[in-house]
Amino acid sequence: MKIRIKFSKQGPVRFIGHLDVMRYFQKVMRRAGVDIRYSEGFSPHQIMSFASPLSVGLTSNGEYMDIEVNSTGSSAEMIKKINDTNVEGIKVLSYRLLLDTAKNAMSQVAAADYCVRVKDEYSSEISPDFPQNFFNFCKNEKIEIIKTTKKGERTVNLSPFIYEVKMPEPDTVFLKLSSGSTVNVKPEQLLTAFFSEKQIEYRPYVFQVEREELYADEDPEGQHRFVPLKEYGQDITDN
């Protein structure tokens, strides 16, 4: 059985890197007694894959991983079991059954939502107009960055990969960005571009970037129809 788990990462654990989060969850599965499937061989590993790595320092309300289990309790029961052994800051939000034919989360990811805010303790290091200015910047039709690849440098316009920009609060810039294996735009890239245009030093620690959700795209060639990854699973109910 394939299961999709959505979880949040908040507080000090934002300093735990992606590989360590993976190791952390392997131990969580054992502590919580999840009947997870193992691969064969001398050092069997759990069948577990993550949708998209989160950079150190970012918080999130929308992380995903897929696992395979031999047996399972109801969603509510499993969420409780897992959260009982979780540390402060990491919390499972949903635990849903996928169809056996479902694509894994990693290959599905096409877009991600982010919120960018200035941390209270660093508000003096930046102009109070930052949210508005950054919002305007992200609305530009041309946001060029220089990408260094093995083949050399090339200029990329990020603008077509910014699907939505808004300011839900006066202190927050919301971004829906292309994500995943095709084009992966990170908020940090936009921040870098913003500051280089303004010719001000970019200090990453000043900002709290939070990932809110990950999506698949049901209409990639046309209008885009973004569906949150958890929608591909069904809650398991008691019966």
Binding site: V13, Y122, Y205
Partner: peptide, 22 residues
């Protein structure tokens, strides 16, 4: 945390200093 984000994002393995482990 005792250390600021600025410091934690600039040192190797910030997880050494934050605690909160299982």
């Amino acid at each position: 945390l005792a250390l600021s984000d600025e410091i934690l994002l600039n040192v190797q393995q910030p997880a050494r200093y934050i605690g909160g482990e299982v």
